[in-house]
């Protein structure tokens, strides 16, 4: 418990530092908030353009699709807010030897690497994504119970764990490759599937993206809680996937860390 409290205190200090930094570089904060907002707009535009020409995608109506998109973006924005900068820097730090700094810190290296920076712009846009979910729920006339809302929050948390794990697995490849540039893009490629309804996947795609990789359930499970209430298979499936993928990310990161040979002269 004291180790947990210790790590929480370290995280709180990092968060305070990141917020202070954001206040110092307000222009940067505004630009990066706009960047994320624009990219969210791109996804929204894709949905709007497709629904200009069709009424349904795999049986999902436009507002249902917006609910799914909002949920997917919410999880992704939370990842951007809490973990992206740290993991993005990991690639560079391994290459130039700055990871030494993290190895010398009093705590889990993986935790220190992941939580060093907080991005307030990502967190601001998670509110926008949540706004999209609320808008879509309103369009659908949904009135979720407090239990449904609590379960939605828990499943969004599980989704965040899975996103983090997939990104960590992509980035940790830098321990084996000269550079993780481009490889990190693997995360973005996979996360595209989280914006699509599970019913769109058939045959081999269903096996790979629904059952082997957790990229579809990650957003479909929470969205379905709001649409259809508690479905044990979806909720427990997502929680199981979260535990499994986090375990895999921890294992791969620590295997990679053993290969790290620093770069100082």
């Amino acid at each position: 418990m004291s180790a947990l409290a210790h790590h929480f205190r370290v995280w709180a200090a990092s968060a305070r530092y990141s917020l202070t930094r954001a206040l110092m570089f307000r222009g940067d904060f505004v630009i990066w908030s706009l960047v994320e907002l624009f990219w969210m707009g791109v996804n929204l535009l894709l949905v709007e353009v497709i629904y200009r020409h069709t009424d349904s995608i795999a049986g999902w109506s436009r507002p249902e699709m917006l609910l799914l998109l909002g949920t997917s973006l919410l999880i992704q924005r939370l990842l951007m807010g809490f973990f992206w900068s740290g993991l993005y820097d990991l690639g560079r730090n391994v290459r130039n030897g700055h990871l030494d700094f993290f190895l010398a810190q009093p705590g889990s290296v993986m935790f220190m690497v992941s939580t060093r920076k907080l991005d307030p712009d990502g967190l601001v846009n998670s509110v926008v994504a949540l706004g999209l979910v609320v808008y879509a729920a309103g369009e659908l006339g949904l009135r979720p119970s407090p239990g449904q809302l609590a379960l939605y929050a828990v499943l969004v948390g599980c989704g965040l764990v899975i996103h983090y794990s997939v990104l960590m697995l992509s980035t940790a490849s830098v321990f084996w490759l000269t550079s993780a540039q481009g490889v990190e893009g693997g995360y973005f490629s996979l996360i595209e599937f989280s914006r699509m309804p599970r019913e769109a996947f058939r045959g081999a795609a269903e096996v790979i993206f629904v059952w082997l990789l957790p990229v579809v359930v990650v957003s479909n499970a929470p969205a379905r809680v709001l649409l259809h209430g508690f479905e044990p298979a979806w909720a427990l499936g997502l929680a199981g996937f979260a535990a499994l993928w986090l375990g895999l990310a921890v294992f791969v990161f620590h295997r990679g860390l053993r290969r790290y040979a620093s770069a100082s002269s």
């Binding site: 497709i50 795999a58 595209e192 599937f193 699509m196 769109a200 993206f209």
Partner: peptide, 16 residues
Amino acid sequence: FSLFHLAAVFILWGAA
């Protein structure tokens, strides 16, 4: 990895 993007495109537009 870009093949994943292509797969996503095929699945999304196939459904549309």
